[in-house]
């Protein structure tokens, strides 16, 4: 009888936690998107172009820094490392464009709000974050701690 009750309880536990894994992935991506959204809100609220530029640069640096920290972790699977590199390059490109380096013309002061929206729309429009849940959670954790 005890074995039977234990089996029922185990099934119930697995039944309860099984949808959590899929949901955790979706929640992690949502947190990432919310982080970008708060950056866009801050840029739009700031009045001086210098401040807008500073917020964008800081946000890009935070993201690149978090990705680099996660990249060096031994437990990160190779497939995720490729995804991290793609994501990092994409953010670096956006930072280069903001500052007018590596072949880009600098984003004009009167276009910084639109640029912040471009960053958000580009990241949200596709299922582009091709890294695993754990890796993404690590990035979010580091971003929170920064």
């Amino acid at each position: 009888m005890k074995k039977f009750i234990l089996s029922i309880l185990t099934l119930a536990f697995i039944g309860v936690i099984s949808p959590i894994n899929a949901q955790t992935g979706i929640d992690a991506e949502a947190k990432f998107k919310k982080h970008i959204n708060s950056m866009v809100n801050s840029v739009e609220k700031a009045e001086a172009p210098e401040r807008k530029r500073e917020i964008l640069n800081d946000s890009f640096d935070d993201l690149i820094g978090a990705i680099e920290k996660v990249e060096t972790m031994k437990a990160i699977p190779n497939a995720d490392k490729k995804g991290l590199t793609t994501l990092k390059n994409d953010i670096q490109n956006k930072k280069d464009e903001l500052n007018g380096v590596n072949g880009f013309s600098s984003v004009p002061n009167n276009n910084l709000n639109n640029f912040a929206n471009f960053v958000q729309q580009d990241m949200e429009q596709a299922d582009t974050v091709t890294i695993g849940v754990t890796t993404l959670l690590l990035i979010i954790l580091i971003l929170i701690l920064l």
Partner: peptide, 12 residues
């Protein structure tokens, strides 16, 4: 059955 969150004018 995936992440379909997006923001429009700051609203999720």
């Amino acid at each position: 059955d995936a992440n379909y969150l997006f923001h429009e004018n700051g609203v999720s």
